[in-house]
């Protein structure tokens, strides 16, 4: 049982008159083996929220809990064991061209994840097994990122994150840098992986149609706050918040 819980999370940048509140008192729960879609436009705070959850952006207040245990809270540096538990939340970034070390082979990158998994919870995964999991040819182990296409790189990034055997995977706009014909394959893959490994997913996207395809629950963010949260079908078919309605109306769908 692993639940990711955000309680009253606030992230601010700057100080004094120049301070901006990127995330404004957000509460959110990602249940075990579920996918929560986080949707919003640029500046809504969705990516900052993701970075705050994994510790890449500082919390001004509030806390992040994994299975009821606080792993991150404002102003307090947690002890080492707790911080190590933080590695059970992994993240895949938007731009596959900058999220892989250009001088490390695919195998070496994934091995860093495997080492983390072994250290933290005695997980025993292999590079070959992980490449297989993300549907990449095992020969790719010895290639450098620049020899791969955008879609392939994103699969490697996914494999590296999964290598740590995480409880929760945060996917931040992982298809927005990819071509249309590649996007679908990565989304299908993420769905298959969720079914195969049981990892919970916080899936962030600006595209409501993409979120709807993957998520069990959807949170809509605007201006740093979650303005609507609910079952995916309910949010997309009977939105209660006017902003959600605007967003749904704006999604470009094929004219049938």
């Amino acid at each position: 049982m692993s639940v990711l819980e955000l309680r009253d999370v606030v992230v601010r940048f700057g100080s004094g008159a120049h301070a901006t509140t990127a995330v404004d008192h957000v509460d959110l729960v990602v249940d075990d083996r579920s996918v929560v879609g986080l949707v919003g436009e640029s500046g809504s705070g969705k990516s900052t929220l993701a970075r705050a959850v994994v510790g890449l952006a500082p919390l001004r207040s509030g806390e992040v809990l994994l299975d009821g245990q606080v792993i991150r809270s404002a102003g307090k540096r947690q002890d080492r064991a707790v911080r190590d538990r933080g590695a059970l939340i992994q993240m895949v970034f938007q731009d596959p061209y900058s999220s892989l070390d250009p001088r490390m082979t695919v195998g070496d990158s994934i091995a860093e994840g495997i080492a983390a998994g072994r250290r933290l919870r005695d997980a025993r995964r292999t590079v070959g097994g992980l490449l297989d999991l993300v549907r990449l040819n095992p020969d790719h182990e010895h290639l450098l990122p620049r020899q791969l296409s955008g879609g392939q790189r994103q699969r490697v990034a996914l494999a590296r994150a999964l290598a740590a055997d995480p409880e929760v995977l945060i996917a931040d706009e992982i298809t927005s840098a990819l071509d249309v014909s590649v996007q679908g394959a990565v989304l299908n893959l993420l769905r298959d992986i969720k079914d195969e490994t049981g990892v919970s997913v916080l899936f962030i996207s600006h595209n409501l149609a993409v979120v709807r395809y993957l998520a069990d629950h959807i949170a809509v963010m605007a201006g740093g706050s979650v303005v609507e949260f609910g079952d995916a079908v309910q949010v997309t078919e009977q939105p209660r918040n006017p902003y959600t309605r605007t967003l749904i109306a704006a999604v470009p769908t094929l004219l049938r």
């Binding site: 700057g14 640029s42 990516s47 900052t48």
Partner: peptide, 8 residues
């Protein structure tokens, strides 16, 4: 949005 505060 991941960047810091942009000057308005």
């Amino acid at each position: 949005m991941t960047a810091g505060p942009a000057p308005r």
